[in-house]
């Protein structure tokens, strides 16, 4: 999942970004609204963590610009303003959630998880595909009740595929949403990680869940 952190206080921005990266999110950082809008143009951002009070282009202007976007990311507004008026104003402007500074890191991460699910229209934090079960909060996967040991990156790919289960997901999309050691998108790094993941998921099971669509990408789901 790709998160854009927009915050003008660098120390705070760095801490948030690092916390997200440690949770295997792909993170972009922006110190002001202009840079945030530039990042948003890529169209691959899933969640935006947005400070409202910034010099120059402020959070409200960013929200306004996002209204016109096709695949609009979920927005978690981060602000020091805590009156009801401010919250209403922020939510009305298009924010999906609201967090007042200072906040607990755990809470922020939970809200980002919830917003990610909302972005992909996933209702529960427990996903089940056939005998595969994924606990999105605990970040663990089970096949027929047995936990599968996954690396952080493998889990990230599985989560992304599971969020879009039944859809064909291109390599480029996986590359955009899962941190891949800064390898270039044209490399086969995604294929390598997917084949590793497939081995662990489908190894001891008769029906395969990860399917390859030649020339298009991958799909997580039951049968064809």
């Amino acid at each position: 999942m790709r998160v854009l952190v927009v915050e003008d206080f660098k120390t705070l921005r760095d801490s948030i970004a690092q916390a997200l990266r440690e949770q295997t999110y792909v993170v972009n950082e922006a110190g002001d609204g202009r840079l945030a809008l530039w990042h948003l143009q890529s169209g691959h951002i899933d969640v935006v963590i947005l400070d409202l009070m910034m010099p120059g282009v402020d959070g409200f202007q960013v929200l306004k610009a996002m209204e016109r976007m096709k695949a609009r990311p979920a927005v978690l507004v981060l602000t020091a303003r805590d009156t009801v008026d401010d919250r209403v104003k922020g939510l009305d402007a298009g924010a999906d959630d609201y967090l007042t500074k200072p906040f607990a890191l755990e809470e922020m991460l939970a809200r980002v998880r919830a917003l990610t699910r909302r972005r992909y229209k996933v209702a529960s934090s427990k996903l089940t595909i056939g005998t595969l079960a994924i606990d999105l909060n605990a970040r663990r996967a089970f096949r027929a009740g047995v936990e599968i040991e996954l690396s952080a990156r493998e889990y990230a790919i599985l989560e992304y595929l599971a969020m879009r289960q039944g859809e064909i997901v291109s390599r480029a999309e996986i590359w955009e949403h899962v941190h891949c050691d800064d390898a270039p998108p044209e490399s086969n790094v995604v294929d390598v990680f997917v084949s590793l993941l497939r081995k662990k998921i489908d190894a001891n099971s008769p029906d395969r869940l990860i399917h390859t669509r030649r020339g298009q990408g991958y799909m997580l789901g039951l049968g064809d």
């Binding site: 120390t11 916390a19 200072p102 906040f103 890191l105 922020m108």
Partner: peptide, 9 residues
Amino acid sequence: RTPLAGLRT
């Protein structure tokens, strides 16, 4: 609050 948030986070 912003620097406080920075400290806490």
